[in-house]
Design a protein around this nucleic acid. Structure first.
Lengths: 264, 264
DNA sequence: AGTATTCTTTTCATTGAATGAAAAGAATAC
DNA sequence: GTATTCTTTTCATTCAATGAAAAGAATACT
């Protein structure tokens, strides 16, 4: 028998339900029933039923106009996730103090698969650049925090990333394997990473890893969008934050949360 | 002998799946398969299958030891929720500045059903009191932010809350309907609420509502755990924050997110 | 080491819960 | 006034979900 016989979506209820939830994204936080059905690729009647059940479980919420949005329950559950409860919560005071000390935007990121992902971002600016949104995925090879995470990762992981195509996000992005590899060594030696417009034009950053018992758990970065300040002056403060957090995580670890590493 | 609790029959797959996810809480962020099954009240084989599918969808995550935890996907989705994407994100710079100005713990809360719920909390302290955790539900009648939210709510809602039993969390909690009602009027007039050890001994706070087009969307509070400072001095800064946020929300509103109110 | 206990994974016959086309009911546009 | 799009309900069909049972691992106890 050919594969084609089986290809017509052998989807489980759960897969369908998750498809419904997955229909929402940053550009579409609110959807009508039919939009939802279209985006989830499912019949309206099916979505109607599934959405109803998800609403009962407070995973979906319906506003006055009948539009669906993700429910508070979902947000509450996100708080129980290791990245939040185990990491962000512990890191927050360190990030605050760092932000207080240097006045620049401060970021916390972890590895997630072959990307980095922003866990938290503290900024006094009212406007929110989409690229550095909390939850945004960013390349490991082209940002300060990304390179900090990468430089302190296991060799096997570094090799895996270096083998993949290194997308050029700006003209300054390092796309040469050997160049990047050499820089990662420097970073590992020096203890912190730098990035200048490698991902976003006009954005400069420094970043350092949070290493607990030899494993990189996260990275903290300081970003400046106007290049007016010399970020190098903040290296001591940055390292104080990463080291402080690392020690704190060592204390907390084991009691509650597991590895946050990207490789398992 | 067996105490046969009548098990959840006639449940849909989704209800079961949500029961699996719901088995996690702050005290149990990581569970083995059998713990998960027990807590969800479902057969192991069933949970095994459901958990597998949820894992495929990255709603669950399994660590090296085989323990389940809530997955990153769940956290990412929480970010798309109106409370986060619509409110927290916008409020962050205001909270940061306020924290910067007064150096005390700063909180952001909204109404959720008959409770208030902490959306964000900024503190420089490393230790984390559980009662004021982000995501924690807190009484409307016994905290600064709670009273600020309540005082500016529709009369129908206030009446509904006043009709419910007002639990005494400390000896200072206002449990008399008439006393509380009178104080709410004062708060509405004065523009901000105060609370002294009404929920947690040793905790003093002031709080003000974020009112957008006549509706309370949230409240911001300043808390002090040692009572050494006189919080009254920070009222102007607090009101600057709430008013600034209200104006900003007015701008953003409509374009993306719906009502965040507890009453619909 | 040997046995008991608890936990995880796989299997499979059974069935009832999920399905989605279709049509009715609302709301909105034209 | 009617055409169009969206929401809700119904229902006969069937296919996916079920969970008991047993095998397979791991861990604890003697």
């Amino acid at each position: 028998m050919t594969e084609e016989l089986y290809k017509n979506q052998a989807k489980s209820v759960i897969a369908r339900a998750l498809a419904v939830l997955g229909a929402f994204d940053v550009e579409h936080p609110l959807l009508t029933l039919s939009q939802l059905a279209r985006r989830a690729g499912l019949p309206v009647a099916t979505v109607y039923r599934l959405a109803g059940e998800l609403e009962d479980g407070r995973f979906l919420h319906r506003d006055g106009a009948g539009r669906y949005g993700l429910g508070v329950r979902l947000w509450e559950m996100g708080l129980l996730t290791p990245v939040h409860g185990g990491l962000r919560e512990t890191a927050m005071p360190f990030l605050l103090n760092l932000h207080y000390e240097c006045g620049e935007t401060v970021q916390l990121a972890v590895c997630e698969g072959t990307d980095a992902i922003y866990i938290e971002k503290l900024t006094s600016e009212v406007s929110v650049p989409v690229k550095s949104r909390v939850g945004a995925h960013i390349p490991l090879h082209a940002t300060g925090v990304g390179k900090a995470l990468l430089a302190f990762s296991p060799d096997a992981f570094i090799d895996a990333i270096l083998t993949m195509p290194l997308k050029a996000h700006t003209s300054s992005t390092l796309t040469e394997r050997r160049v990047l590899s050499r820089q990662l060594n420097q970073i590992a030696q020096r203890g912190y990473a730098q990035s200048d417009a490698e991902y976003q034009l006009g954005a400069t950053s420094i970043a350092a890893p949070v290493v607990v018992r030899g494993t990189v758990k996260a990275a903290i970065g300081i970003v400046n969008y106007s290049a007016r300040d010399d970020l190098a002056q903040y290296v001591p403060a940055l390292l104080r934050a990463t080291n402080g957090l690392a020690l704190r995580l060592e204390d907390v670890e084991g009691t509650a949360y597991p590895s946050l590493s990207g490789l398992e």
